[in-house]
Structures are given as structure tokens and as C-alpha cells.
Design a protein around this nucleic acid. Structure first.
Lengths: 161, 161
DNA sequence: TATTGTTATACTCTATAACTATA
DNA sequence: TATAGTTATAGAGTATAACAATA
């Protein structure tokens, strides 16, 4: 797992050793929130993918499964709008979840165009495991940034919008 | 520009109109910092790319230009380690910056393997414009999340690591 | 005409591996 | 033998466009 660099951060060498790289000036990156946001976000994805490794689930798949469980029977359009996943991409993502027999798509009664999304029984079982691993990931993240900062960030980001 | 959804957020329809989507339950995403981090990060990239559109510069290119300017003559390995850009990807990214005649790579005296990176005169000129646009983007971001929250997030994320 | 969902294409980013040249 | 850099490949994510079926 890569860690955010600080003056004393270490970097892995290719034979498994470690070294302390000379620290370089950030320039105006030091005033770009996006830079720091991006660095943490990359760490989060890497840890998430690693922690969820046993279930082979990526962040986007996880978010779709959670939202289907919380809103069974909704259409692809509804789920996609909520998660800002483009419908072409969501179609492919659901095809994979259907292949793994975690999700069903059946034609909606009310509108012949839309597909109602639901979890299968094995999808529910898988998601239970997945949610336990996601919880583990959240603990990793809290430990990485500090429990207090974790709570502060959550409050700042969740309340806005 | 896509905006973070809230209960009253609007979504564009394909003919340019707008609608208010029914709000769906987040499920446990409401307790995942990564989810909120990711949403803001996507907004940041979209606004950055749009704001920097006149110069056709993407976030990774911007960060490399800024760090080369702040640390002239350093090697690709040094820049890549600092920004966590994989060396294969950095090689291609620099090839593009070299093609635009913004960056030079010349063999380092001390080590025949490494390339010293520098901005050209026109690279400096371009970067001056780019930095003005990046500053604009930062104002957009501060307006989007609120000036106070922007400062709080910056403090929380910059000080850690 | 517009929307839902599908398929296809293209470009960026990420992750590897194989290769060269230097050390 | 390890490192600096290059090239190539594959997978995910993003952004479009074109299409069929339905509204």
C-alpha cells in the first residue's frame, strides 16, 4: 500500500528495500485542494480494492450493490443518476453483476423500457460479506488519517450539497 | 458541470431541460468517507479540465509542469516518486509535453541513465497562463463547497502525512 | 419526439512485463 | 544485480454516438 509522502516518507525499491527520497518542492500544488483530495482518494481506492480483494469487488460495483439493496426494484436510470454513473457504463457493470448472479434485471410492469433491479439471494449473501470488508476498509482509513480527522472530513463532506 | 446531488438537486434531461429525480437511499454509503471524497474529487477534475480547457491541460500534466518549475533539473524518477506517477505513464506524459515544446529532457551529467527535466521558455510562458486558470478553478471550488469549508478541508488534508 | 437500455468507439489512467543502457 | 527510462499490453473509468424498443 502506497502511503502519502511526507519529508520522512519511505518508498519501496524494486528489490523490496526502502529508501527516503529527497523531498521536492510542491510549488503551487500546496494551494490546490484538488491535489490533496486526489492523493487521499487514490489511497482510499487502493485500500478498498485490496481489502475487498477476497470478494473481487471494485468501488463502483460496491456502490451499485449497496444502492440496489437500499432501493430494490428501481430502474437503471434511477441508480445511475444517483451515483453519477453514465448509463452505458452502468449497463456493462450490471452485466457483470448479473453474470455473477448477484443481480436480476426484469422488465418493469409500468414502463416497458425500464428494468427493475434487485439482488438475488446469493447477491444478498455476497453483499453481507462485502459490507463487512467495507467496514474494515473504513477502519483502515480512519487509522490512516486519524480518527478525529476522519470524523471531521466526514462531517465536512457529507453535510455539503 | 455536474453538481453533487441533494434532495432538491436537478438533473439535466437530454433535450436540455431539467428535472428533480426522486431521492434514493444511500444505504451504508452514508458512512463511507471514500464515497463523499470521490464525488467531490470528480467534481474537481471536471471543473479543472473545463477551466483549463483553453490550454488543453489535464490535472496530471499540470502537476508535472508545476513540480518541474519548482524543482528544475530533477530526474523523471524524482518527479514520478513525488507525484506517485508510475514511470511508464510519466514517460508518455513527458513525451506529450516535449512534443508541445514545453519541457526538455537532457541526459544528466552525473548519471547517464537519468534525464534532467526543465521547462523551455515557451513552457514557462504557457505555465504562467495555466497557473492563472488553475487559480480560477480554485475559486470555483471554494465557491462550490463554501469558502470556510474549503479552508477547513485544505487544513485537514494538507497537514496530514 | 423523448427516454431506457444496449453496443461500439476512443481516450485517459492504472498496472504489468519486457527491453535497453547504464551503474 | 539493480536502476532509469522506454515501449507494449490489458483493464477500468469516462465520454460519445448510434441504435432498437417503448413512451
Amino acid at each position: 500500500m502506497k502511503r502519502q509522502k511526507s519529508a520522512a516518507a519511505r518508498v519501496k525499491t524494486r528489490d523490496g528495500g526502502e529508501m527516503v527520497p529527497e523531498s521536492l518542492a510542491l510549488g503551487e500544488l500546496d494551494h490546490r485542494l484538488g491535489y490533496f483530495l486526489r492523493r487521499l482518494q487514490i489511497w482510499v481506492f487502493q485500500d478498498f480494492i485490496q481489502t475487498l480483494g477476497p470478494m473481487k469487488v471494485r468501488p463502483a460495483q460496491y456502490s451499485v450493490l449497496v444502492v440496489i439493496e437500499a432501493n430494490p426494484g428501481r430502474s437503471q436510470a434511477a441508480i445511475g443518476q444517483m451515483l453519477d454513473i453514465e448509463r452505458a457504463r452502468l449497463a456493462r457493470l450490471l452485466h457483470e453483476l448479473e453474470r455473477r448472479q448477484w443481480v436480476t434485471r426484469r422488465g418493469a410492469r409500468s414502463d416497458g423500457r425500464s428494468h427493475a433491479l434487485n439482488l438475488t439471494a446469493s447477491g444478498e449473501t455476497a453483499l453481507a460479506k462485502i459490507k463487512r470488508l467495507a467496514e474494515q476498509h473504513e477502519f483502515h482509513l480512519a487509522a490512516y488519517v486519524g480518527v478525529k480527522r476522519h470524523r471531521q472530513l466526514m462531517d465536512l463532506l457529507r453535510d455539503f450539497g
